[in-house]
């Protein structure tokens, strides 16, 4: 027991001497970024890249941890939100998290967060190489002729890729048989194996398979065409179906967030570091090599983007019958 007493005393003394070392205001100690999706996913990678750069400008380490589970990452989000709102706990998230509210995992609207958007990879529609569809027109016309017969894969109901598929259906009038998969990789796998004919995922996830000839790209689901090395230019699907512009693009918005009521000083410091980090060559090169489009939106700009995403996702899910809480109950306006 004596030993314990001595140890405790030593520890206490050490603690007392430690108190006055820091003079800088924010950040004084390490920051923790809670990523609500698993290690190695798009959100996780994005967060690790940006935080590795940001910590150089902040002067402290940013530790990235993963806390998964719940609906639409609600467990990690609730955890990050329950920590003190002092700017020392960030939440790494993506556009898919906006559905946590209507799915009953989160009692707030999304604007309790101040968001920082790193960017995202644009969605693309592709087919199995041995199908007869050479262009998007071929595919859409075939789907119109036999509605609900052509199988189309995307990750789970209500995911960003499913929303893109739905928007494509609405904008072009085609009707596919939607087959959900557990994520982008299994859905692409199924398209390669020929189990389904059509697949919608992001370019970052698909580029290897497209360039390797395992899948055939038909069109980007954004207003612009896209140059892919070794494959040439993938046309925008808006070229053949201008009506799509009414529903698309629905873009990924990967980044991180801090509670909106965190001290102004902390938010300002984070913003400054975020802007500097976005301008570094490392982030730019990473984005280019991985087919990401950088955004860099913060403050009011990113708030507007997330509000739009939230209302779009929430009401789409409600219309599909996959939401448990009515969006209007949370005060989410219709898109």
């Amino acid at each position: 027991m004596k030993k314990i007493l001595v140890i405790t005393l030593v520890l206490l003394l050490a603690a007392m001497t430690a108190g006055n070392v820091f003079a800088q205001s924010f950040p004084k100690r390490n920051i923790t970024a809670v990523v609500v999706w698993g290690a190695g996913g798009g959100t996780d990678t994005c967060n690790r890249i940006i935080h590795a750069e940001m910590q150089k400008f902040l002067g402290v380490n940013v530790n990235v941890i993963n806390k998964t589970g719940g609906v639409a990452g609600s467990v990690g989000m609730s955890y990050a939100f329950s920590r003190p709102h002092d700017g020392y706990t960030l939440c790494g998230l993506s556009e898919s998290n906006v559905t946590a509210g209507v799915q009953g995992g989160w009692n707030n609207r999304f604007d309790v967060w101040e968001t920082f958007i790193v960017g995202g990879s644009p969605d693309i529609i592709s087919v199995t190489p041995n199908t007869p569809y050479k262009t998007l027109k071929d595919l859409i016309e075939a789907a119109k002729k036999s509605p609900g017969k052509i199988t189309a894969a995307a990750s789970g109901a209500g995911s960003i890729h499913h929303l893109n598929l739905l928007a494509l259906e609405k904008g072009s009038g085609a009707d596919f048989n939607f087959i959900p998969y557990k994520g982008s990789a299994p859905s692409q796998n199924a398209a390669m194996a020929g189990e389904v004919s059509v697949v919608v995922t992001s370019l970052a996830e698909q580029q290897q398979l497209l360039r390797g000839g395992k899948l055939r790209a038909l069109g980007m689901l954004i207003p612009d065409s896209f140059d892919v090395e070794g494959l040439g230019t993938i046309p925008s699907s808006f070229d053949s179906y201008p009506g799509l512009s009414k529903y698309l693009p629905i873009s990924q918005a990967i980044g991180f967030a801090v509670p909106a009521d965190a001290p102004l000083e902390a938010r300002a410091a984070l913003q400054a570091a975020f802007r500097k980090a976005m301008a570094t060559d490392k982030v730019k090169n990473w984005a280019e090599e991985n087919y990401y489009l950088l955004s860099g939106a913060t403050g009011a700009e990113s708030k507007a983007i997330f509000n739009a995403l939230e209302s779009n996702f929430a009401w789409t899910l409600w219309d599909l019958g996959a939401a448990t809480v009515k969006p209007s109950k949370l005060g989410i306006p219709k898109p």
């Binding site: 109901a157 739905l166 019958g321």
Partner: peptide, 8 residues
């Protein structure tokens, strides 16, 4: 039978 989650 009824539709749930946008899947037939």
């Amino acid at each position: 039978k009824d539709s749930w989650g946008g899947v037939q």
